[in-house]
């Protein structure tokens, strides 16, 4: 149960960890948008190199970041196989054909690019959650969404729901572990039998987990009530977010990356060296 590497904060001191969460959120958004403009191997290479440099600065071990790919490994493999095997490409690029399976050279490149894009799409946000605590993250989201409060979107409530949910993930994991152990101590068997048997074997874990979640939610509601919690009105914060010089540097580099990729794709001024790269 503890192998959920995606999104687990990795506590080391680094310039990336110290960035304002809003900077990191914006950077990830820019990064994702940028990835959708890229459709050449050169472009993906540059984006990957950029990400690699950020990872090195963040001091999070490369293996830890790559581990988050595990969650989407099947998606990657399926995407690759389906877009490669079952879609027809240019007739002159045919390699081999059998029934509904077609192998085309150009499809190979399209599928490969799709997979690289997916891979890079996962790694960026993974690095965000590895270098930012859930609390910082929700503070950042709340702050970025604040303008929406003008059109009566309950930004604060959404943020507090998010932070409670994030806060309870490790607690529920721990609880699950405990209950699994308690049932294992009564010789419960979770690892054998077919899929239906296994699903049924999880019932002795799920029911106590639900019961305790409701109990916990009740307790939390009581605790908030008894501290006179009444939403956003007049609330001040303990940690005030503040942009620093490094935040502007980060955003500047993100802007450079986005612009560079746009040029690589559209080449507005018909620069020769870009044409060579592509």
């Amino acid at each position: 149960m503890r192998d959920v590497s995606f999104g687990q904060y990795y506590p080391v001191p680094s310039p990336i960890h110290r960035l304002d969460p809003r900077t990191k959120l914006l950077s990830v958004i820019i990064y994702i948008v940028t990835l959708f403009f890229i459709n050449t191997f050169t472009g993906f290479g540059i984006a990957a190199l950029f990400l690699l440099i950020i990872i090195l600065i963040s001091k999070v071990p490369l293996g830890k970041v790559l581990k988050s790919v595990k969650a989407v490994l099947f998606l990657l493999i399926f995407t690759f196989l389906f877009t490669f095997l079952f879609v027809k490409g240019e007739p002159d690029k045919l390699i081999w054909e059998w029934g509904i399976i077609h192998l085309y050279w150009d499809r190979l490149f399209v599928s490969a690019k799709l997979c690289i894009r997916l891979l890079l799409l996962v790694l960026g946000p993974a690095l965000l959650t590895l270098t930012t605590t859930p609390m910082e993250l929700t503070d950042g989201v709340e702050s970025l969404l604040k303008p929406l409060a003008l059109i009566k979107v309950p930004v604060h409530s959404l943020a507090i729901i998010m932070s409670i949910a994030l806060r309870l993930i490790p607690t529920l994991m721990e609880e699950t572990d405990k209950i699994i152990n308690a049932q294992k101590a009564r010789c419960a068997d979770f690892d054998s039998g077919n899929i239906f048997k296994r699903a049924k074997a999880m019932l002795p874990v799920l029911i106590p987990l639900f019961v305790s979640s409701f109990r916990r939610a009740d307790d939390l509601a009581d605790a908030m009530d008894s501290r006179c919690y009444r939403g956003a009105k007049g609330r001040t914060r303990m940690r005030v977010l503040k942009f620093r010089f490094s935040d502007f540097v980060m955003l500047f580099f993100m802007a450079v990356l986005l612009t560079a990729m746009l040029f690589l794709k559209y080449n507005w001024f018909n620069w020769a060296f870009i044409a060579v790269l592509v």
């Binding site: 405990k178 308690a182 294992k184 010789c187 019961v211």
Partner: peptide, 17 residues
């Protein structure tokens, strides 16, 4: 596990049936 019977802290939270 049938030889070594283990009762955890707050064992009532393991009830399910």
């Amino acid at each position: 596990r049938s030889k070594v019977g283990m009762v955890f802290q707050y064992p009532e939270y393991q009830l399910f049936a």
